[in-house]
C-alpha cells in the first residue's frame, strides 16, 4: 500500500516536473523530440514502430477511411460528408491542377496531386491533434518520399509530353539566351532542377513541421515550468506562455494546410515546366 502510494507520488511528481533539469533550471526542447524515440512495437526489427511512425499510420488510415465513407455511394445531390469531400477535392482540382496545368494535363495528374495533398494534410494536421501531438512529416523519411514521388512525376511528365531529349534540352539550355551563357547556365540549371528541387521540397515540409512542433513544446513546457517549478510573482509569466501556446496552435493549423498546398502547388509547377515545349 505504502509503496503504491509512494510510486504514484513519484509518477505525479515526474508528470508535473518533466521540464525542470536537476538544478531546477528550465530545459529547452531540442532535437531529442524527434530522434531516438523509444520503440513501441517490433523493437530491433526493420519494422520498428515508434511514436511518429504510429502517428503516420493512424493519420493515413483515418484519412482513407474518411474518404471512403464520404465517397462510398456518390449521389447527384451530395449529402453532408460527400459535400465536404467534394469541396476539398474540387479545391485541388480547380485551384492547383487546372490553374497551373490546364484542362488536359490537369485532369491527367489530378489523382497524383490530390493524393499528395491529402496525405500531407493528414500527416501535418496530427501536429496539433491532442494525444498525437506530433506531425507525421516531422521526420525526414516521409517528406523525402513525397519529394521523390514529385521528382519522378515531373521527369515522367517531361519525357512523356515533350520527349526525353527535348525535355533535357529545354531544362538545361533554356531558349532565348546567347550561347556563351550556356557554359554558366547549364550546370546551374542541372543542379537546380535535378538536385535542389526534390531536396528543397523535402526540407521545406520537414522543417516547417519540426519548427512548429518545437515552438509548441517550448510554449507549453515553459507554461508547465512557470506554474509548477517557479514560485513567486514570476509564475505569472506562465499565463503569457499559455496564451502564446494557444495562438501557436491556431497558427500551426494554418501552416499544416498551407504546407500541403505549397507542396502540391510546387509539384504542379514543376510538372508544368517539364511538360511545356518551351518555358
Amino acid at each position: 500500500m505504502e509503496t503504491a502510494l509512494s510510486t504514484s507520488a513519484l509518477v505525479t511528481a515526474a508528470l508535473l516536473r518533466p521540464f525542470a533539469g536537476e538544478d531546477g533550471e528550465f530545459k529547452a526542447p531540442g532535437i531529442d523530440e524527434f530522434v531516438g524515440l523509444p520503440a513501441l512495437f517490433f523493437e530491433g526489427t526493420p519494422f520498428e514502430i515508434n511514436r511518429i511512425i504510429m502517428v503516420r499510420l493512424i493519420a493515413l488510415t483515418i484519412m482513407v477511411v474518411l474518404m471512403y465513407l464520404a465517397l462510398r455511394k456518390t449521389r447527384l445531390v451530395p449529402g453532408r460528408g460527400q459535400g465536404v469531400a467534394e469541396m476539398a477535392l474540387d479545391f485541388v482540382r480547380v485551384q492547383i491542377a487546372e490553374q497551373i496545368l490546364g484542362e488536359r494535363l490537369g485532369r491527367k495528374f489530378l489523382p497524383l496531386l490530390a493524393s499528395l495533398f491529402f496525405a500531407i494534410l493528414a500527416m501535418n494536421i496530427t501536429g496539433i491533434v491532442p494525444f498525437a501531438n506530433i506531425a507525421g512529416t516531422s521526420l525526414v523519411g516521409m517528406p523525402l518520399t513525397m519529394a521523390l514521388v514529385s521528382y519522378v512525376a515531373f521527369i515522367y511528365a517531361g519525357i512523356r509530353e515533350v520527349g526525353g531529349w527535348a525535355f533535357i534540352k529545354n531544362a538545361l539550355f533554356p531558349p532565348g539566351v546567347p550561347w556563351p551563357l550556356y557554359i554558366l547556365l547549364a550546370p546551374v540549371e542541372l543542379i537546380n532542377i535535378f538536385i535542389m528541387r526534390p531536396v528543397s521540397l523535402a526540407l521545406r515540409l520537414l522543417l516547417n513541421m519540426m519548427v512548429g512542433h518545437l515552438l509548441l513544446v517550448l510554449a507549453f513546457s515553459s507554461t508547465n515550468f512557470f506554474f509548477v517549478s517557479v514560485s513567486g510573482p514570476a509564475a505569472a509569466f506562465g499565463a503569457l506562455t499559455l496564451t502564446g501556446g494557444i495562438v501557436i496552435t491556431l497558427f500551426e493549423l494554418l501552416i499544416a494546410v498551407l504546407q500541403a498546398y505549397v507542396f502540391t502547388l510546387l509539384t504542379a509547377v514543376y510538372i508544368q515546366q517539364a511538360a511545356s515545349e518551351h518555358h
Binding site: 528543397s200 526540407l203 521545406r204 516547417n208 519548427v211 505549397v262
Partner: peptide, 12 residues
C-alpha cells in the same frame, strides 16, 4: 505563395 515558399526556405 510560390514566391513566399522559395524565400522562406532560406530561413528554414
Amino acid at each position: 505563395f510560390l514566391g513566399i515558399a522559395f524565400a522562406e526556405l532560406l530561413a528554414f
